[in-house]
């Protein structure tokens, strides 16, 4: 099962290495990782997506809790969470196909960031699935490069 962990950490040097190292040591693969400061500049949030097929996720969250700089961990419930990723896609496109690609982008509410004679660069925001879907539709044109952020997520509702 895929989990999205939202981890509040003290904004101190070495914290990222400690967290990432712990996942590796305990046999978990990190699928994506996004780090940024929060409303409190002394505190950062890490959003980590991880597969927990082989080991129960509790073992790694309990171990994470033992890191002195980790303040709080939430295993986000997908039904109560809004999650987004951002991707930049450079796709082959010349004068002949430009309109078609731009139309695809429009359907996905993606925007065009850069145009060259032979390529278009598209920015898309959305769920993992939405980005995958656009990527697949762009594949036949030839995807030159794709750059994705990790997932960031926030709980729905007031708190």
């Amino acid at each position: 099962m895929k989990h999205t962990l939202s981890v509040l950490v003290e904004n101190k040097p070495g914290v990222l290495a400690r967290v990432a190292g712990l996942f590796a040591r305990r046999g978990f693969n990190i699928n994506s990782l996004a780090v940024g400061i929060t409303e409190d500049p002394d505190i950062s949030r890490m959003t980590i997506t991880v597969d927990a097929e082989e080991h129960p996720i509790e073992q790694v969250t309990k171990q994470l809790h033992k890191l002195i700089n980790v303040i709080k961990i939430t295993d986000l419930d997908p039904d109560r969470t809004v999650a987004r990723e951002l991707a930049l896609v450079k796709v082959k496109s010349d004068a002949k196909t430009r309109a078609e690609v731009m139309q695809l982008a429009e359907i996905f509410r993606a925007s065009i960031l850069d145009v060259s004679k032979k390529t278009l660069t598209i920015e898309i925001t959305g769920t993992y699935e939405k980005i995958d879907a656009l990527e697949q539709l762009l594949q036949p044109h030839g995807v030159v490069e794709i750059v994705r952020t990790g997932r960031i997520a926030i709980e729905r509702g007031e708190k």
Binding site: P13, G14, A17, R18, G21, R25, K66, I68
Partner: peptide, 9 residues
């Protein structure tokens, strides 16, 4: 890092 409870530089 994997063998300390915590460390400081």
């Amino acid at each position: 890092e994997p063998i300390v409870k915590h460390s400081y530089l």
